[in-house]
Structures are given as C-alpha cells and as structure tokens.
C-alpha cells in the first residue's frame, strides 16, 4: 500500500492552480503540459489515497466518513477539470474549478475521518441490507447533487466574468471562457439536475432514518446537520421556483447568474460548513 497523504494531492492541485495563473500571462505548450501533469499527478495520488482509505475502513469511500465523501466530491471535480483541460487548450476552467477542489480538500482536512456511526453499525450487522441501500442512495444522490451545485456556482461565476468583460468592451485577452449562451444553457442544466438530486437525497435521508429507527444507533431528525440541510433545501426550492419563472419575469441572464451564484454559494457554504462544524455544534449522527 503506497503511503499517500492529503498533502500530496493538495500540493499537486496547488501547483496546477499556480501554473494556470501563470498561463494567463505566458501561454506556452510547456505551461499547459505542466498544468496537465500536476493535475494528473494529483488525481493519481488522490485515487490511491481513496483506495487506501477504503481498504483501511473496509467501506466504499462514499459511505465511510465525511472526510472521505468530501474527497470523493473533489475527485469528481478534478476528473471533469482534466477532461475539459485536455480537450480545450485555451479554456481557463482551472482558475474556477481548482479553487473549489482546494476548498473541498482543505475542508476534508478538518472533518471527521472516523466511519459514520450509522454505517459502522450497519457494517457490524450485515443482515441490514436495506439500511445499506438507503445509505448508499442517500450519499450518492447528495454527492452528485452537491457536484451539480458546484458546477452551477462555477458556471454562474464564469457567466458574470464574461458578461463584465463584454459590457466593458474588452477583447478576449488572456482569460478564455465559453460564450454567454452556452454558459446560460449549462447553468440551466446544473440547476435542473441539482434540484431533483438534492431533493431525492433528502428524501432518501428520511427513508434511512425510518429504516434505522429500530436499530442500535439512534437517528434523530433534530440533528443540526439535518435541520441546516433542510433549511438550505427550502432555500434551494424557493430559488428553483423563481428560476422556473425567469422567462415570464423578463429576467436577464446576468440576474439569473447572480441569483444562482448567491443561492448555490449559500447552499455550498451551509452544507459543507455544517459538515465541518458537525460534532462541534452538538451530537450529530452525520459526524
């Protein structure tokens, strides 16, 4: 088993971000190769680390601890980033996605690495297959939902930067971004995907609580993470209702981008913040 630490891939991603910044001023094939090299090296170290964790806990990383699923989320974002960077040599996507990755990896550093109490209890009692399915569904839907939220956030930010450039009448210069029409369309997809994924993720969480009701671990809906996530979900729904009526309200693309940025930003801070603070806010079975 290779000894890989969080620092290994955190440093790789940090270097990739540094070279991405440098590419703004010195765009050479060497810089692009360096970005891809650092990104790929980080991804390999990241994958090995997750593999090691899975072997240690005997659980898939998505189900193991908060630390692990945050790293799974960051891993997914890096995968998308490398795919885009490989196929579009000019797109400055790394400047937007890599800080998100670094934020996730950094946040993962501060959260619990112990297997979740509910999952650990299930692991001890292999007969509770139904509980395992609910847990898997809950974690998968939430991780994909949060990934969609992250991409929506990044796309809105890119839209605003591009809009600002066009309104200021500046040429393309160094920061190459997709056009407004494409960004708006992708953003719409991110919203349309994130809402059902997070809603189903919440509902599967309710199902999981109901399943676990009879088990050895007490699952309480008064859990601060559950309450905070519920509030965040309500805000997401309010945003979604507003979003679905934008064409009737004569809302401009810029207004949509601002509100998406605010709503998704709030959602990310709430969800990830609650994970970081869970355990410190009181008893939480999400810790």
């Amino acid at each position: 088993m290779l000894n890989v630490t969080v620092f290994c891939f955190l440093a790789s991603y940090l270097c990739a971000l540094g070279v991405e910044w440098r590419r703004l001023y010195h765009r050479t094939p060497w810089n692009r190769a360096l970005v891809l090299l650092f990104g790929a090296a980080g991804l390999v170290a990241h994958t090995i680390y997750l593999g090691n964790r899975a072997a240690q806990t005997n659980l898939p990383p998505l189900l193991s601890s908060t630390h692990d699923w945050m790293l799974v989320l960051a891993w997914m974002v890096v995968l998308v980033y490398l795919f885009l960077a490989l196929f579009d040599r000019t797109l400055a996507i790394g400047l937007f996605l890599l800080p998100m990755v670094l934020g996730l990896v950094g946040a993962a550093y501060f959260v619990s690495r112990d297997p979740n109490a509910v999952v650990a209890a299930e692991a001890e009692n292999m007969a509770r297959v139904a509980g395992r399915v609910w847990t898997m569904l809950h974690a998968t839907l939430l991780v994909f939902g949060i990934a969609a939220v992250m991409f929506g956030f990044v796309l809105s930010l890119m839209y605003l930067v591009q809009h600002h450039r066009l309104k200021r009448k500046h040429g393309r210069h160094d920061l190459t971004l997709p056009n407004l029409e494409r960004l708006a369309r992708l953003n719409e997809w991110a919203v349309l995907l994130s809402v059902p994924l997070l809603t189903l993720g919440m509902l599967s969480g309710v199902g999981l609580g109901w399943q676990m009701g009879e088990g050895s671990v007490t699952v309480s809906f008064n859990d601060p993470v559950v309450i905070g996530s519920g509030v965040a979900w309500l805000i997401l729904m309010a945003f979604f209702v507003w979003f679905s009526q934008t064409s009737r309200r004569r809302t401009s693309g810029k207004q949509v981008a601002w509100l998406t940025l605010a709503a998704f930003g709030f959602l990310l801070v709430t969800i990830l913040g609650l994970q970081v603070l869970s355990g410190r806010l009181g008893e939480s079975w999400h810790a």
Partner: peptide, 13 residues
Amino acid sequence: VAVGEFGKSIFDR
C-alpha cells in the same frame, strides 16, 4: 474583432 471576439463570446451558434 466584432464577430470573433465579441459576437462569438455572446452567442454559441
């Protein structure tokens, strides 16, 4: 410049 730098930054097609 009009079409390539500005037009194509607004519209996808």
